[in-house]
Computed example of a mutant assay.
Amino acid sequence: MDIRQLQYFAEVAKQRSFTRAAEVLHVSQPSISKMIKSLETELGVILLDRSERKIELTDAGQLVFEHAQRVLQAMGDLTSSLEELRQVERGFVRLGLLPTVGAFLLPAAIASFKKHYPQIELEMREYSARPLEAQVERGHIDIGLTVLPVDEERFEAIALRAEDLVAIVYPEHWLYGRESINLQELSEESFVLFTEEYAMHDVVRQACLQAGFEPKVAYMSSLWDFVGEMVAAQIGISLVPRSVAQRLNKGRLHVVTLSWPPIDWTYALICRKDRYLSHAARAFIGFVREHVIG
């Protein structure tokens, strides 16, 4: 059995036609027929039901087709890897990121990366946490910049930097002037939360549940700045990463450290575990780790 036999058979199986397969592969139809017949003889099974006008796979053919696809994918990955070894500075990386996280962590690292690898093209798109994971899972983006935790069975995660969550309150609030607070003390407060598709929503809710209460939701938003404005307008209080709190309107907001439970907010790059990762993507991950983690 050789790779061409599997290639020819897989294309016929996909096209359900010798004629269309021959057109795709740019070979003659008799050559394909001969190659598949040779494969059937070697395996001792019939792979294609040729009795009808449209070709169908036999049970054995379906099994061989599934395995052939994996073999051909592996061969394609090998070819790509070897090509990249010959052209190590070329490539294309599709990067997905959480909007505020990306603005906080990556601009300087990306600028430096482009200077070191001017021929590696970066395509960047913004997603909230759950859609970002779905895009990585489907292979639509190569690397995602998100926050932990993620499903470790599906994704490889490279932790970059952690920070704590803090409470933000308005000047007239009873917490104004306090340096720290136990989360249990906020059980009667109204919260301005992020919408459900954002990881922050689940992190804050789980922390409140751990502290013994379900947070009362006054308002939900998908925008950091709007959350800050809603707190300043006395709609409620909120929990946000410290780096975000420092960027909001300091004259109208006060930051209070959470003494218990400490809530970690860890930024990470993720990629799919079972998917080939290009040299360009690996170079980007290594570069960001060096420049962000230090």
Score class of each variant (00 low, 15 high):
M1C: 07
Y8P: 01
F9K: 02
E11K: 01
E11C: 02
R20V: 11
E23C: 05
S28W: 11
I36G: 02
S38F: 14
L39R: 00
E40I: 00
E42P: 09
L43T: 01
L43V: 03
G44V: 05
I46L: 14
R53Q: 10
L57D: 04
E66G: 00
H67I: 00
V71E: 01
V71P: 00
V71G: 00
A74T: 06
M75C: 12
E83A: 07
E84R: 06
Q87M: 05
V88D: 15
G96A: 00
L97C: 10
A103V: 14
F113S: 02
K114V: 10
H116C: 03
P118V: 01
P118G: 01
Q119I: 07
M124K: 00
R138D: 09
D142P: 01
L145G: 03
V150S: 07
D151E: 10
R161H: 04
L165R: 09
Y170K: 06
E172V: 02
W174L: 06
Q184D: 09
T195H: 13
E196S: 13
D202A: 15
V203H: 15
V203W: 15
V204R: 15
C208N: 06
F213S: 00
K216I: 15
Y219C: 14
L223V: 15
D225R: 12
F226I: 11
A232C: 05
A232L: 03
Q234I: 12
I237L: 07
R242C: 10
S243A: 05
K250F: 13
L258R: 14
L258F: 14
L258K: 13
S259H: 08
W265Q: 09
W265M: 11
R272Y: 10
S278P: 01
A280D: 12
V288Y: 07
E290Y: 11
V292R: 03
